[in-house]
């Protein structure tokens, strides 16, 4: 539910909006219109897909791919990147300030982005990494459902990276209100 902010349909609001009027409008749509139809807020989309009981889910592409690949009936599912925008999420490898063994941390990161491991990792998590071995476009065809790992450039262009800004508290409040209102 990190991408709560992308709900304001086609009205052109940025999902990182901090404007009260836009967040009010988003809350109305999310809490009053959407929430009553939501059955659950689950941490792992792929697990929920395996368990059954859902027909429509909002999920990150890599999680969805994992769920589709593990499903007994993969054709039951189809993934679409939301329009007009959606959350572009990035995870990072970070070494904490004052970490006791930065060399070991660098060695680990070098290992995991080296060609062999990088491909295995991408295949498992379902998201591209910063490894050089992925710069060759031909590599993409080696994966199942490559279109879910490597979205086309025009899709990437319309996505929005989330920001931690002063709208965060309000977004959590909207999520809380939505959860209290949900239960299809």
């Amino acid at each position: 539910m990190g991408s709560l902010g992308n709900r304001p349909r086609g009205d052109g609001y940025n999902l990182n909006s901090t404007k009260t009027s836009e967040l009010d409008a988003a809350e109305k749509i999310v809490v009053d219109e959407l929430a009553p139809h939501v059955k659950a807020y689950v941490g792992s989309a792929s697990t929920a897909m395996a368990q059954g009981g859902f027909t429509l889910m909002q999920a990150y592409n890599g999680d969805a791919r994992q769920g589709i690949m593990e499903s007994d009936d993969p054709d039951r599912w189809k993934f679409v990147f939301a329009k007009p925008s959606a959350n572009l999420w990035m995870d990072n490898w970070a070494i904490a300030t004052g970490a006791p063994h930065p060399d070991a941390a660098h060695a680990f990161i070098n290992w995991i982005i080296a060609p062999d491991q990088a491909l295995k990792e991408v295949d498992y998590i379902g998201y591209p990494t910063g490894s050089k071995s992925l710069t060759d476009k031909k590599v993409e065809d080696e994966f199942d459902y490559p279109e879910l790992i490597f979205p086309a450039q025009e899709i990437l262009d319309r996505l929005t990276a989330s920001e931690l800004n002063s709208g965060q508290q309000r977004r959590v409040d909207i999520l809380t209100a939505a959860q209290a209102r949900s239960g299809a």
Binding site: A35, V38, K39, G43, Q168, Q169, V172, Q179, S182
Partner: peptide
Amino acid sequence: TVLGGANGSMIGQIIANQFNTAQNWAL
């Protein structure tokens, strides 16, 4: 969190949301 879905929400989750997602320890 594990079994609840939307209509099984409990207050512990809302408190956890404030600490984790909103990073608002005071609230």
